[in-house]
Design a protein around this nucleic acid. Structure first.
Ligand SMILES: [Zn+2]
Ligand SMILES: [Zn+2]
Ligand SMILES: [Zn+2]
Ligand SMILES: [Zn+2]
Lengths: 156, 156
DNA sequence: CCCCGGATGAGACTGAGTATCAGGCAAGCC
DNA sequence: GGCTTGCCTGATACTCAGTCTCATCCGGGG
């Protein structure tokens, strides 16, 4: 099942209608290389001469976020963007500051660390957010790129 | 040296002028209990019948952020706020979701963890952000509150 | 095929943040 | 203390992401 279908399915499974707009947005999201903003999607939709309202894009992104199909990032430059996301378990994102490509990072030891910080300060911790920014192997363009890409089955 | 003076000093030390507006904002920031937004400061300034422009507040907060006197938070509810901040070393914030009071948290083991995540994925990590949200001892209102407060010399 | 509640798009609206610019004033210099 | 210069300021206009409204549309169950 390809990414687009997976996203459409997510809408269905959650009891939402399948509409042309949502199918289009699923394609656009699935076709994104790095992170993307609502405005990006709108541009790409317009390039395809597709008619979709701004509000619809925001609504779809909101839904997809609540379904954990995408996650909203707060970039260091103060803007926002979304990345596709493994819906199945809590994790964080390692984002390339150049191309926006993102890797899911398991919480791992962090959970323990967060827990301990809460205990030490007497806070009952409800949520936490970890965002990592750096240069991805592809953008660094070194031999490391090939090595890691091979590990993962090649560039997205 | 009290907090207000410390902030004014930060401006001076960085070579910026000391002006009535900046003194006022230093007071307002220093007098903040939890986190605060530009709009909060504007309100409190107006309450004092002080004349200060909106733009000036944004400019001051931008400066103070660059001087690491305050840090800008991205709250879970999508809004932004600032908290006062130890300017001396890299750290993160544990923020009360109810009252906004914030505790500085040393990076500690996180540095190692971040490093390892970068290595494992072939990214050269440039920056990271960790934000923790929960209920502070004071808001939880349990015996824990008194204990931790005593540890720290009482409520701010 | 019908119906209806969910979905849509156009466009108005909000509110945070930015840009501009003429005037003000801090601070170093004499 | 006055002078000068360049940083700083407030007012105002502006931008732009995101939200709201509402008349219309249409997916999909019956
Ligand atoms: Zn990259
Ligand atoms: Zn986590
Ligand atoms: Zn609290
Ligand atoms: Zn850190």
């Amino acid at each position: 099942m390809d990414q687009t279908t997976r996203i459409v399915r997510a809408f269905e499974d959650a009891g939402y209608q399948t509409t042309p707009s949502r199918r289009l947005l699923a394609e656009l999201v699935a076709g994104s290389r790095g992170h993307f903003s609502a405005a990006d999607l709108l541009d790409r939709a317009r390039q395809r001469r597709a008619k979709v309202g701004r509000a619809t894009i925001f609504r779809a992104l909101e839904l997809l976020t609540s379904l954990h199909v995408v996650e909203r990032l707060d970039l260091p430059n103060r803007s926002h963007a979304y990345v596709m996301c493994d819906p199945d378990e809590h994790h964080h994102h390692l984002v390339c500051s150049r191309c926006g490509r993102s890797v899911d990072v398991a919480d791992g030891e962090l959970a323990r660390l967060v827990d301990e910080i809460g205990r030490r300060n007497g806070y009952r911790i409800e949520t936490h957010r970890l965002e990592l920014f750096g240069i991805c192997p592809l953008c660094a363009g070194t031999g490391a790129a090939a090595a890691v890409a091979a590990d993962r089955g090649g560039p997205a």
